[in-house]
Design a protein around this nucleic acid. Structure first.
Lengths: 348, 348
DNA sequence: TGCGGTACAGCAAGCGCTTTCTATGCAGTA
DNA sequence: TACTGCATAGAAAGCGCTTGCTGTACCGCA
């Protein structure tokens, strides 16, 4: 049937132990022997049995990356950066690792199940990306899992996600609150006083933090927020489109719309245009994240750039133990305000 | 240390065999015993050892999805659809599977390494998405691997990728040639005679097929292509921007630019605008794929819609054996021309 | 010449699970 | 009462690999 270590050993006239050592390169083997073994491996097209190896060595070369929505470039960019550092194939260092990304679709159950699955596989490391759900029970369940993983020797890193106290997880957190505040500060600075806000899904840390930043800016400038000015939706374009129409219906006098992210902002732009409003002359629009397409919006989107690739790369290195964890196990990654054409002074 | 099957067995006062049977549910176990076992599992927080299980059962619950660029929604959308059908957690059927996506970054070596890694893990199925590299040696190497995988019982499905003859792989192929042809037909129909083409990376089936479709349309209308009209680049926005400037430099009289995909088209739009040209009044632009953001371009992008999610879902079902393979193991998935604002008649 | 040291190579004991085969108990049947 | 058959449960043999420990040469040095 399939070729085993023993087959290779037989062909190379050595013991299985020697073959294993040649393959792992962690024990001295005479050059001539090594060559003989390698030749046999090649001749037989031998492929190591991963599960058997993992079982015997009590380690695995699997690294899991959890994302909320794999179809969203926000996660894709981070995942790509993480994966490239994990070394996967082609990465610089060490044994080859299977860096795999798992799509939770924003579902708490799936998140938990994936964690269990990775725990089952005795993953070498796990990176969780993006905002967390705020349901208390779920958070507790995740915390327990993370602690278990850490105890079992799996390195756990959070990238773009708030810290999980007492779990041993390293956190690279995005300063969503600060970014949101800066963005709204900018709009207020331009003279806006009536700002709509399209928030992301309820019960998500990212959603809440960005909204809090927005409100902090309003408060700092003594602007009282009208409850009609905030709408919740999903993190996608269509949601932005619908929410904007709703906002316009509720209060046509709005002069600016702040969106939870760039995709939502794009939908907002479309809705405004379809409503016969010019950007930014009639209404200013702002996004968040600065995804690649945002600069191509017309006008180009004012937004907050998050260093997704850099943060992902760093998370990947930390997960691989190739970079030291930040002091206290927590680092805050700041965004950068990108002022572009979609924001301008309010109409008269 | 970690809890094992034996620990659970001891606590439930049964043999390890019984615990295994309860967990796998493939053998009659008295209800009372089952409950006792389940309780013990719960009490001890037992988590199955994946590698051990895979070794003993000679099967694995891993399913691999290979993508060329995880940061590109083109792949993200397909991967998400595949994964949701694989069942991963939350999926409808059967035992939980770990659907993992692997990012090759378009590198042949990484593609091969990932295949080996998945082979090593004795993956239950593998789905390869997107265009293939056209290097003969590489294609042969991949073919060999795919055959090996198939022989070892791994189901192999190609999604949006040309068939791989004699490998036993099921192929769901996109009709890139037909789509490209239809798109250019449309532009020619509008009156264009001088069309620039921004192709994707060399040596990629997708690149070649789309370009062939374009040329077939030109030929069908008796238009002789000027060699200056085609430029190769990457599948991203920046590449589209640069290529468009180059195209404009080579021949300012072009009245239309056809891009290899939507991201490239977006870059093209930006370059045209920055060059003081209006779309579509001065130059028409067309993309390919119809990614979500394409409709938000200004003007909205004329493009070819590929049913990425549908194809992915189908590939996922086939990989899980939940849907029958198409006759002959090959199915062609057609695109649909989406005529929007970015294309219009040529300027005088 | 003899002995410690070094450099390899092999033996064999698991790693934690699955599964075949073999009990065992008890109900049903003759 | 004796026997067959079914429903469960357990014993034990691996699955293919890693690794601690045990040789066995052979070298250098005293």
């Amino acid at each position: 049937m399939t070729v085993t270590l023993a087959d290779v050993a037989a062909r190379a006239q050595v013991s299985p132990a020697t073959v294993s050592r040649v393959l792992n390169g962690n024990y001295p083997v005479a050059a001539s022997t090594r060559e003989r073994v390698l030749k046999a491996v090649d001749d037989l097209d031998y492929v190591l049995n991963g599960p058997a190896s993992a079982l015997a060595a009590a380690t695995s070369d699997l690294v899991g990356i959890l994302v909320n929505d794999i179809a969203d470039p926000f996660f894709g960019i981070m995942a790509g950066a993480i994966q490239s550092e994990i070394g996967g194939p082609g990465g610089r260092a060490g044994g080859e690792r299977l860096a795999v990304v798992c799509n939770t679709g924003g579902s708490p159950e799936r998140e938990l199940t994936y964690l269990t699955l990775l725990q089952r596989q005795r993953a070498a490391a796990v990176v969780l990306t993006g905002g967390a759900m705020e349901d208390a029970a779920h958070q507790a369940a995740v915390a327990v899992k993370l602690r278990k993983l850490a105890e079992a020797g799996t390195r756990v890193v959070l990238c773009g996600r708030p810290p999980a106290p007492d779990t041993g997880a390293i956190a690279l957190t995005f300063d969503n609150r600060g970014g949101g505040r800066e963005l709204t500060d900018h709009l207020i600075g331009l003279g806006h006083r009536r700002l709509g806000y399209i928030a992301g899904p309820q019960e998500r840390t990212t959603t809440r933090h960005r909204l809090e930043g927005h409100r902090a800016a309003l408060a700092a400038h003594g602007i009282e927020e009208d409850p009609r000015w905030a709408v919740h939706g999903r993190y996608d374009r269509q949601s932005g489109y619908e929410a904007t129409l709703e906002l316009l219906r509720r209060d046509p006098s709005l002069t600016a719309v702040v969106a939870a992210n760039d995709s939502v902002a794009l939908g907002a732009c479309a809705a405004l245009r379809d409503s016969g409003l010019r950007i930014p002359d009639d209404v200013s629009v702002a996004g968040f994240d600065d995804l690649p397409f945002s600069i191509d919006a017309v006008p180009a989107l004012t937004t907050v750039r998050l260093p997704l690739a850099e943060a992902g790369a760093r998370a990947g290195r930390i997960a691989m133990g190739r970079e030291e964890a930040p002091p206290g196990g927590i680092a805050t990654v700041r965004g950068e305000l990108m002022v572009r054409g979609s924001s301008g002074g309010p109409r008269e």
